[in-house]
Design a binder for these strands. Sequence first.
RNA 1: GCCAGCAUAGCUCAGUUGGCCAGAGCAGCUGAUUUGUAAUCAGCGGGUCGGGGGUUCGAAUCCCUCUGCUGGCUCCA
Length: 515
Amino acid sequence: MLELARQKNEFVRKEVSKADAISYYKEKGDEYKLELLDGLNDGEITFYEQGNFVDLCRGPHIPDTGKIKAVKLMSLAGAYWRGDENRKQLTRIYGVTFPKQKELNQYLEMLEEAKKRDHRKLGAELELFMFSERVGAGLPIWLPKGTALRSRLEDFLKQEQIRRGYEPVITPHIGKKDLYVTSGHYAKYGEDSFQPIHTPREGEEFLLKPMNCPHHCEIFGHRPRSYKELPVRVAEFGTVYRYEQSGELHGLTRVRGFTQDDAHIFCTPEQLKDEFLGVLDLTKHVLEKLGFDDYTAQISLRDPEDPEKYIGSKENWDKAEQAIIEATREVGLETVTELGEAAFYGPKLDFMVKDALGRRWQLGTIQVDYNLPERFELEYIGSDNSGHRPVMIHRAPFGSMERFIGVLIEHCGGKFPLWLSPEQFAILPISDKYNEHCEELKAELNVAGLRGFVDDRSEKIGRKIRDTELRKVPFMLIIGEQEAESGQVAVRKQGEGDLGVMDLSAFVALINEQL
RNA sequence: GCCAGCAUAGCUCAGUUGGCCAGAGCAGCUGAUUUGUAAUCAGCGGGUCGGGGGUUCGAAUCCCUCUGCUGGCUCCA
């Protein structure tokens, strides 16, 4: 390839008439180029020629092949012709090139570094979660440390939500098929989803819940509602199951069983905007608290070309889309707007965050829905003593615990903020003689609300430090003869080194400062 | 689901023109050592070579199939 590049062949741009182009490719028998030409207008067709190679291309190109100095072919993959899965799949070769070999090397090193942060690797190393072939693909299993981390995240959000007027609820993991027929999910996803569970009773069918909203609609509708109690905000860490395509599964970021930090707000049309703003505020608060400052907000609207894809009236869609656009504008949130990315029942605002390899994932989401209240015939009694339909907001600041933690692991490279870290300290006795003293220190720290462990193996201190560093435990307390006598602790910070000797109370203060 | 590839011990990996009992390092266990800021020493145990089928005198190695994983494509309530 580089040999070809060295020939310094110029890329020559040629404007070609449509007729000439068609006859050229007819002769070559290139059905693909002919199809592309079919969609192009005369006068906008260009060929590029370099050496003995000629091809239809819009361009632009670099001036000549001599500019190409460093090339690496990265991967081979199938790609559907014109992105349509119903059409033929062609083979696509991925490659990268840089003006200098050094830059290519830097790029490859960057990819290596990114791999070290990969949540799938770190998750296994830090014993946060696992997968089991026997349990099934895409079904994450949370290990004790991962559970500790996840519980803290959940508790953080639960408290925040209670402060903001949400009411926690709990609903079952399955529901009768009819529930999802009513919601419209069955018609849309039934075929491609986990199939109904049958019971000994004829005709009785249940579905693993793919969504929490139908259950929450039932909660809203279980008794008459007055306008005086709106907005009603029901929140649940609800575990849902979706049969994602096998080729789509990916670590924690795309799974078949996951827990949404879900809540549904039922409000009057007049309250919609304020509620939307409240959710925006919560979502931003959550992302900032976890150190995500590099996210983008995406407004997903209908595809104007394909109105059949959506359920609900045009008027309601218009209102919902408008509410999102206005609210984001009001808080000055920078957004990109994507047509055709809306859910089938309503437009949404998604917060997108990149993973270690630069792939973008949707985390938090806020969705306006006029459709489900309609389908479930939800009503509240207004001040006029007649029934009105509430508006519904679906929202999940984390999105799902699985995906959020997956991205969080990569974001912080496994070094979690102190308040989330499954182990905040490790006490490392220099010899077995101090094990007992270390246990006492640990008990004191536990009383102070901190968590950690004593490494009482009869290993050299260097070894214990190394192992603790690799476990990414934020603080180490090294205890030998001097500390045992003085009653102090020698503090070492992960990744930074020795912080010196201090009283235990000073160490507790140091940690509390960072919480 | 589709295309391409991968699957050897808990982990990282050796082992291909098919040929004796499948190897290493780390981890684990046992013992010795009692240690001052990123790996103490020695011994031991551990693998249906992802599962199933086939070809062959003989399969980790070749073929088929299933499962899982990886990179894309498509999808994502």
